[in-house]
Write a protein that binds this DNA or RNA. Structure first.
Length: 949
DNA sequence: GAGTTTGAAACT
DNA sequence: CAGTTTCAAACTC
């Protein structure tokens, strides 16, 4: 069992760490310098108002809420709302309390459950300050100390000696939540003291329904019968010092956004921003003891809870073992904050000095205040510190922005990951999230927490949080000199007719996490499928597998990775690349299935490992769709058609036999690849996790034989066999043809051109299958006779790593090579000198070309036939001839010739002549371009027909 | 989904 | 080789 819980914190994260009832984390806003406050808060920016404003929701059980209302007067509106658990009732104090300070409780003692709150008295240690003792059923006494009330909202000169408990309860489980809504101001200060040992946390229990039913009525009479079983308010408990009453002063500090920070004044002083001393980890359940063992490290177990935007502080978090403690009951969990601190001679005893990123320091005496240091905004941090004594239940932290940039991090029990195990000996480093509030359910296998930074952290099963890479890792832009499977520089210009032409560059691939159904057509009809031409469907793979959990020897990072992947070692992340949808076709877009993405080479180029390799060799596959003739970057990957056919027959006979060893090899490879950690984009992550959470049961389980997973959906016999065989040969199908007249035996047909059999196509009278092998072979011969390279890849890279080029070049005239009509553009490669295109704008960075000027000409040409008047009739035909007339060309040539003549007369070197001739040509072209631009502008500005619109 | 546009393939 | 036709995909509405 976890060590006894001395701290009085309650958990406000809804998780229900029953043993932590929050008096300890009482935050007190301090605005007035005083002996006490100076001691507590060195942040000048915080020294203004003595008002204690309890802004954070603190849930009180009904009896406590009623008692509070009684104590605080009519200005308190106590709202009782049922909590999720039937045993508790939440009470919110909604309005401000300035008008009625805490010491106006009256003289009558108040009993809350088993706790008796005596009339205000004077604390012997705080002369002049009235203390309200609260006596618990087990004999503990807690003093509620407050200072003088603030009048008229004036905050000056009123010392804030200590804080009022935002949760007037201690470790007893009965008061699980004490919510004081934002805006609640408690004028004055209070000190909460507890001088009796607390009960062991094992005695903590939830508030029963009967108990919650009592207080409301009893509070009115201040005579609530205490619960016999346990007190609502408990003093500090300590497993090691149960006989040593320790007074605990709590100071409440309100942050700018209304959050509370509780400063425990009663604990020994700790200077956090000092170099770590010998790490001493102490069970967090005994804060007093912790504070007496000062070191310099604050170690908080458990994931962080939330982090407001703009946070720039980073605590040291040790989220150890949270993922392994899922089996423990949250109700019995004991938060264990192991804080190792170092004593600061300048800090009063029982306090810690917390420094913010801005350098401001506050003295806190709460072990749960964790270290803040000047760190850029980051959402993750990791520490590795042994915590042998700590209970395994983790804590999480809430970063609280304060005034003037001062921020705090508050540690809360991590209920969902809590555990009662006390023999935890090691803590594995884990990333923790300072992002959104974590989910309270352990059942959520994965959640994404996106903090205020670019980091993405994903919480996986058991609370492990791992960072996720950025999207570029998945679809990187092509690095210079690398295999250009990715995008290239977008050409200049802004031809509106070509807008969006780059919408499907590889870098712009629409990545979607889609559930991969065994039926490939199941999601083919998605409306967006047409737009998202290249959809990477990343199916979720279940976290549970037949092979069981990862071995204990697996490093934590690898475990996390496996959690991300939702796989075990032999599992893989499967992707399907969805090809272009066919207009007017009922066919689903072809999808390629890849086992894993993100195997990157030395150049950072990512590859997809095709899972269809019948020979068991993962293939490097061009990760975009390709039109006919666009196969693989490496022509060697594409088999000659004859060889494919021969192979096809062989595969038909031995298909199954060949598949199985391929599986084994692929699994081996995937296991290796898993070490490289798949890089997934942010939206991918989120969707992946959504998929994890919602579609877990639908995902194909990789424990199934790989062949079974990857085999295509059932198709009619011959085509299916042929297609499967071709797939096994490494063919890279991407879409289904829609041929109607070519019988799929001409190069018009993409399937045929790619040397593939038609499968799942909507073609008519298709002969591109095994049933018509004779005709097919005749057609192949015919094509080869016309063009021996007909079936060779159109786009190849001369050498590995070179830029891919279209071997033949395009011949575009009207598209500017910025639409998919252009084969170069479609293949995501720039046009080259092989191209005969007109007005090409599909080019790499060409600093030697004034693209603006070229665009003018191109635009002029393109717009020539596009310019219409208001009636839609063309205003002019082919205006490009206006500029490049024969006279202009002749004049240009004559100028060049004249240069040559001059140089010959002067016997100048030929090199100079050539240079000057080219310069002359350049000048002439510039003049033509300038003239064209001017004319073009004039045309657009002067012509009323064009400017009318 | 129908019609149009586009450019490669096929043909002359 | 150039011009035309055919074809299917891309694109637009």
């Amino acid at each position: 069992m976890a060590s006894k819980q001395q701290n009085l914190d309650s958990d406000d994260n809804g998780g229900g760490c029953d043993t932590n009832l929050g008096m300890k984390r009482v935050c007190m806003e301090k605005k007035e310098p005083s002996a006490t406050t100076n001691e507590l808060l060195n942040t000048s920016g915080q020294k203004k108002a003595p008002i204690v404003r309890i802004l954070e929701n603190k849930r009180l059980t009904a009896p406590m809420g009623a008692a509070l209302k009684n104590m605080l007067g009519e200005n308190v509106r106590v709202v009782t709302t049922p909590t999720k658990t039937a045993s508790t009732t939440e009470i919110k104090i909604l309005n401000k309390l300035q008008a009625k300070p805490l010491n106006a409780f009256g003289n009558a003692p108040v009993k809350i459950g088993s706790t008796t709150i005596a009339a205000p008295t004077t604390s012997p240690k705080n002369i002049g300050v009235k203390m309200t003792p609260i006596k618990t059923a087990d004999g503990k006494v807690i003093y509620l100390q407050k200072s003088l009330p603030v009048t008229g909202g004036t905050t000056s000169k009123v010392p804030l000696a200590s804080g009022i408990s935002d949760r007037l309860a201690s470790t007893g489980s009965n008061i699980r939540h004490a919510i004081l809504s934002k805006g609640v101001n408690l004028s004055g200060t209070c000190t909460i003291k507890s001088n009796t040992p607390s009960l062991s946390s094992s005695t903590a229990r939830g508030l029963t329904a009967a108990e919650t039913a009592k207080p409301a009525a009893h509070a009115a009479t201040n005579a609530v019968t205490p619960s016999a079983s346990s007190g609502l308010i408990k003093g500090p408990s300590s497993a090691d010092a149960v006989s040593t009453p320790v007074a605990t002063k709590i100071q409440v500090v309100r942050t700018a956004d209304g959050k509370l920070i509780k400063l425990n004044q009663g604990s020994p002083s700790v200077l956090l921003n000092t170099k770590p001393a010998i790490p001493t980890t102490v069970s967090g359940s005994n804060s007093n003891k912790v504070m007496t063992k000062p070191t310099a490290q604050v170690i908080i177990k458990g994931p962080l809870k939330q982090l407001p935007a703009g946070s720039s502080l980073r605590p040291i978090i040790n989220n150890s073992g949270s993922s392994n403690n899922a089996t423990s009951s949250s109700s019995s969990a004991v938060a264990s904050t192991a804080i190792t601190t170092s004593a600061s001679p300048s800090i009063p005893g029982g306090k810690m000095l917390v420094q913010s990123s801005t350098g401001k320091q506050i003295v806190v005496a709460n072990k749960d205040i964790i270290k803040l240091w000047p760190m850029p905004s980051t959402s993750t941090t990791t520490t590795t510190t042994a915590n042998p004594n700590a209970a395994s239940s983790g804590l999480h932290a809430i970063q609280l922005p304060g005034k003037s940039g001062l921020q705090y991090v508050r540690v809360l029990p991590n209920n969902s990951n809590s555990s009662s195990a006390s023999n935890e000996t090691t803590t594995s480093p884990q990333k923790v999230s300072l992002g959104r509030p974590r989910t309270t359910s352990n059942n959520t296998s994965s959640t994404v927490s996106v903090g205020n930074t670019t980091k993405i952290v994903m919480k996986t099963t058991g609370g492990s949080i791992v960072p996720l890479p950025s999207m570029q890792t998945l679809v990187p832009r092509r690095a210079p000199g690398t295999t250009p499977n990715t995008a290239y520089t977008k050409p200049l210009g802004n031809n509106s007719s070509l807008d969006g032409a780059h919408k499907h560059r590889v870098s712009d691939v629409n990545v979607q996490i889609k559930h991969l159904s065994s039926d490939s057509a199941s999601d083919a009809g998605a409306p967006e499928a047409k737009k998202a031409r290249y959809v990477i469907a990343m199916p979720h793979t279940p976290t549970t597998s037949a092979t069981g959990p990862a071995p204990a020897t697996v490093p934590a990072s690898q475990k996390n990775m496996q959690k991300i992947m939702g796989t075990r070692a032999t599992q893989m992340q499967r992707f399907t690349v969805q090809g272009a949808n066919m207009t007017g076709s009922n066919n689903p877009p072809t999808r390629k299935i890849y086992n894993l993405v993100t195997k990157s080479d030395a150049n950072g180029v990512k590859y997809m490992i095709c899972n269809k390799g019948g020979e068991g060799k993962p293939r490097t596959v061009f990760n975009t769709t390709m039109r006919r003739g666009y196969t693989l970057a490496d022509s060697k990957l594409r088999r000659p058609l004859a060889a494919q056919q021969a192979r096809l027959k062989q595969m038909k006979q031995h298909q199954h036999r060949l598949m199985l060893p391929a599986q084994a090899k692929q699994r081996q490879q995937l296991q290796q690849l898993q070490k490289h950690q798949t890089t997934i984009t942010k939206p991918q992550q989120q969707q992946t996790l959504k998929s994890t959470a919602t579609q877990e049961t639908k995902i194909a389980i990789p424990s199934k034989p790989l062949f079974d997973i990857l085999k295509p959906p059932p198709v009619p016999a011959p085509a299916a066999g042929a297609a499967a065989a071709l797939d096994a040969l490494g063919g890279s199908r991407r879409k289904h043809c829609n041929c109607s007249k070519s019988q799929c035996l001409k190069l018009y047909c993409d399937c045929f051109a790619n040397g593939e059999f038609c499968q799942d196509c909507t073609c008519k009278d298709c002969f591109n299958n095994l049933d018509y092998e004779v005709k097919r072979e005749e057609a192949i011969r015919s094509c080869l006779e016309r063009n021996p390279s007909a079936f060779k890849p159109k786009i190849t890279a001369p050498n590995s790593g070179d830029i891919r080029l279209h071997n033949k070049g395009c011949n575009c005239k009207r598209s500017g090579c910025l639409k998919n009509y252009c084969e170069c553009y479609e293949a995501k490669i720039p046009c080259s000198t092989m191209c005969k295109c007109v007005g090409c704008r599909n080019m790499e960075d060409r600093p030697d070309v004034d693209m603006d000027s070229m665009d003018s000409l191109v635009d002029a040409k393109l717009q020539t036939n596009k310019v219409k008047d208001l009636n839609g009739t063309y205003l002019q035909e082919n205006r490009s001839n206006v500029y490049l007339t024969d006279d202009v060309i002749e004049a240009t040539i004559m100028c060049m010739i004249s240069r040559i003549v001059m140089h010959e007369k002067q016997n100048l070197p030929v090199e100079d002549t050539e240079r000057e001739v080219m310069e002359e040509l350049g000048e002439s072209l510039n003049q033509i371009i300038t003239f064209a631009k001017e004319k073009n502008d004039t045309f657009h500005t002067d012509d009323p027909k064009t400017t009318a619109a």
